[in-house]
Amino acid sequence: MAEEQTIDPIHQFNINRIFDLHVGGVDASFTNASLFMLIIFVAITALMVLGTSGRHIVPTRLQAAAEMAYEFVASTVRDTAGTAGMRFFPFVFSLFMFVLFSNLIGLIPGAFTVTSQIVVTFAFSALIIGLVLVYGFWKHGAHFLHLFVPSGVTPALLPFIVLIEIISFAARPITLSVRLFANMLAGHITLKVFGGFVAMLLGAGVSAVIFPLPLIAIILLFALELLVAVLQAYVFAILTCVYLNDAIHPGH
């Protein structure tokens, strides 16, 4: 039982209350998830606000990192959603940095991964799709519905195409949230399982000689997870841009 506790790969996703807090009947308790959200916020703010406080012409290391993040996201938004999409740049930037920092901080052993909670990723997706809908209808009115009616389709096929377009649009918040959530969840479980193998082998007498095998695997996996963490943040940001582009330019 105690041994099973050490390799319990789900334990890391548990949410523990640090103190209870109820505001107007809503549970706003401060948990380890809240703590890590605050850590993410503080880390990003430290990088982007304190790191650039010198306004150096020749940047310091921290300022260079902040500038790199800025230019990377700015070029992603501009390439995907056009210059008109730059009005969403602060939003996409905040989203990208939040997801990136959450994924990366989550890789620190013992840390909690905010984006491994489906409620968090789904909240982001709902926010994005809500923004797309509100902005699309506010900007284009009923013309926004052209998004679901591709031009140049045979009239006979049109009902099916429209149906498919609507389904694919409706699936976006689900795919967007599940992609990030599942990647984080699966990666962390795998790392934990391999870590458990190392611990188990070390306590298993003669078989302990093969403990380097899972250890090497965990190192390689960690590198892969590092890539996944950055890649998923990028995918999340670029899909946001693609969806926002639909709201900005609804015609296919």
């Binding site: 549970d27 706003a28 998830a33 959200m37 605050l38 993410i40 905010v114 409620v119 909240a123």
Partner: peptide, 13 residues
């Protein structure tokens, strides 16, 4: 814990 996560996510984000 959904409610508290959403509250804190809204605050921090």
């Amino acid at each position: 814990h959904f409610a508290s996560q959403l509250v804190w996510l809204a605050i921090t984000f």
